[in-house]
Design a protein around this nucleic acid. Structure first.
Lengths: 227, 227
DNA sequence: TATTCAAAACTTGTATACTAGTCAAAAATA
DNA sequence: TATTTTTGACTAGTATACAAGTTTTGAATA
């Protein structure tokens, strides 16, 4: 497990949540593995309490399953939950990119442009950096539409999807993500909601296609019930 | 504050969350009021720990604001957060009713029908019962589409909206909610996604119209920043 | 009287101790 | 040997104790 240092102005609970989340998404903690509160607490140099609270929050999105008096299991990759996460993201963000066409100010467009240029720079250079920029791009759209609380809720569920997305970034060669983002931003700049919607849906549709590849390559992490 | 008995197979934390949530939504705990962990814990006959954990979860949806080392404040009615909650519900559930047209089985339709007949029975008789049936109706649609995790996430944010919705049920006389539901169910039965979408959006649009009434009648609960 | 400042009385955050439930392996029994 | 029982070593859930920060209070001072 990867244990970065604690940020300033971060409570122990937030620190625990941040570190555990990151390790689950990056697969440094393997799907299906058992993790104990005491074990994590020791690694992070904390008591059980803040770790317990972090586990509680993670269990809300079913990214971990707390088995009372038994332990805490990191959920297997579950296609039903991924489907829900994808559904939520596609549904919400499709509506957002349409709204963004009229809400985006000059400054917002500049921020999106800056982000996208960095994406183009890091393409085929640094996959992790690209993933972070991708997340930031989507987050900016929530911000433009004043929907940051929705962002938080969608993010929580999206962890199921993010675990797979990071696999997909490493396993699928021909990445069209950046050019997709370019198409979305162009549509927003032209204030064309229909084009923005179409570009966004095309973008998100790629992750549907990747599922079979992921399924083959990482079958040891896929839960039995998944179809 | 209203303190119902603890259910069996319910942890103290879940009990605390259930009771506090209900009292916030029903306005038995007034928007803007300070509530202490110890105070609630004593009322519920618990220690601070499970109450603290319940507050944490409530703070995730910003229905309460935890001010470290100071206290916990029940959020004022905030039109921005209501807007977000409405946006999320409308966006997600509009997509769901379309999907429900092809996913709903005979048994699902029967459940919706039973619920709706109860709504018609209780109309203008028992507003609280009607509200509960309304919630159940919407929940059934998530269930039909296999999106219960989304339901949980949307519900959490929806608390902002629910507080206002209960006001609206008591203050607005001419309730069209039940006939709206009838129209939605008919569209699902006919497997007509376009009609279902239209009926649902008409349904949710009513709460936009109610805002001015609510604003006038309950201005002491509305936060300053709200427009 | 008005102002300053310290201490007391609060708050939540966190650590620790204890409770109760689960499981597995060892021990007792047939 | 096979089966049941017991016991001990784990777990998370909860209560309690303490730490650290904020606000209030009230006495001392100008």
């Amino acid at each position: 497990m990867n244990v970065p240092p604690k940020n300033v102005n971060e409570t122990n609970r937030e620190y625990a949540f941040r570190v555990i989340s990151a390790n689950i998404i990056s697969l440094d903690i393997e799907p299906g593995s058992m993790i104990g509160e005491q074990e994590i607490a020791t690694m992070l140099g904390l008591s059980r309490t803040p770790v317990h609270e972090a586990f509680l929050e993670l269990s809300k999105s079913k990214i971990v399953d707390i088995l009372p008096q038994k332990g805490c299991r990191v959920s297997m990759i579950d296609s039903d939950l991924i489907r829900e996460a994808r559904f939520l993201r596609i549904t919400v963000e499709t509506a957002l990119v349409e709204d963004a066409c009229e809400l985006a100010k000059e400054e917002d467009l500049r921020e999106l442009e800056d982000n996208l240029e960095l994406q183009e720079f890091y393409l085929s250079k640094d996959a992790d950096k690209l993933l972070a920029l991708d997340n930031e791009f989507h987050k900016l759209i929530y911000s433009i539409c004043n929907k940051m609380q929705c962002y938080y809720m969608v993010s929580l569920m999206s962890m199921h999807f993010d675990r797979v997305r990071s696999l997909s970034l490493h396993s699928v060669k021909d990445l069209k993500i950046v050019s997709d983002h370019r198409a979305i931003l162009n549509a927003i700049k032209k204030k064309d909601p229909a084009a923005a919607r179409a570009a966004f849906q095309k973008h998100m549709a790629r992750f549907e296609l990747d599922w079979s590849i992921i399924c083959n390559e990482y079958k040891q992490y896929i839960s039995d019930g998944s179809t």
